[in-house]
Design a protein around this nucleic acid. Sequence first.
DNA 1: CGAGACATGTAACCTGTTACATGATTCC
DNA 2: GGAATCATGTAACAGGTTACATGTCTCG
Lengths: 197, 197
Amino acid sequence: MSLRHALLGVLSMREMSGYDIKRHFDRAVHFVWNASDSQIYRELRQMERGELIVSRVVPQEGKPNKRLYQLTDAGVTELDHWLASPVERPYSKEPFLLRLFFLSRVSYEDARKLLEARLGEVESLLDVAAERLQIFSDPTRSGRPEALWWQTRLIEGMRRVQSAEGAWLRELIRDLDTSQRNEAGEPGARGEGGQGS
Amino acid sequence: MSLRHALLGVLSMREMSGYDIKRHFDRAVHFVWNASDSQIYRELRQMERGELIVSRVVPQEGKPNKRLYQLTDAGVTELDHWLASPVERPYSKEPFLLRLFFLSRVSYEDARKLLEARLGEVESLLDVAAERLQIFSDPTRSGRPEALWWQTRLIEGMRRVQSAEGAWLRELIRDLDTSQRNEAGEPGARGEGGQGS
DNA sequence: CGAGACATGTAACCTGTTACATGATTCC
DNA sequence: GGAATCATGTAACAGGTTACATGTCTCG
């Protein structure tokens, strides 16, 4: 139930509405967790029923009223308890790797396209990381320096992991090309009996 | 709906029962996808209703009867269509990274424990990778060589990504220790209140 | 005698996605 | 005039988890 903990986490920084949280998720938390707005609103109501958070309605003019949430003591306790609890084992749901597993079924061209597309995703995540580091290095930036320290290290870790994946993908594409060219090859293409699509 | 595609993939290798699939998942596919047995059985029934697979019951003595599934033409088409379709964007649900995001809330000891535990997970995944490569290098091993080529590259990719994460974690632990020792530090521990810049 | 492999499933529940509804204000 | 922002939600469905039920055989 990690969405709950993500919400407790962002609310520990400041009082926020569902809408604020959604925006904050999309900007800052996005590559570690994401959620749709309806999921966030539903979870907030459930958490309020469970007394981890309380809300107050703030009337506004010209805009819809908003409902601001903040943590209760029980919420703070729950957050800190989660942070100190044993790690979950890593998610093993990787649609891309699952495809690789069966990629010998498809043609050289389709395989190559898939690898290139993934490389594109990886590179765009690297751009996001660079951009985040830029934001963090802004000296006028507010916020607790310890939080910044951890978030910077987190981005750094992501950068290194994505770099490793990128390097691997580039090698893989290169090897696929060479073994395709001299046909001596291992690689996947079904080739002989091919039905088209 | 990637469980469906994972099931189509393993059934493309050979006819299997739900139980066979579960075992195969746990052994070979586990770090790219996993599923509970009840989920597998449910999805198989739905796929049979959708005519992607067909089953036949094989009576057995001393053991429960079993139901073997194989792909229909529609199932093969669906599998190949998925393999050639655009990549999903990477899953952004990483409970560990989510914790890091808020880790400035916890004490040095708790933070360190968490990082060590994650390092343990990463190292055990590296062991799994090594073991898989061992199995693949068995010359008596059966199976299509193109499938083996892709699966070997997949494991290699996983190895490199996990290595990168391991290296990052070790540095992070080291830096946490040093800045804890000379107290000059940034790192997270809430503890005593204001140390500053 | 008990544990574990074999084999398939139901029921209840929780989590996540998609589509839809509402309605004022601001910017192009 | 139309899109985007602000703001909160409902309803229906799909995907995933957990607990439970059943029964035989084999191994130690």
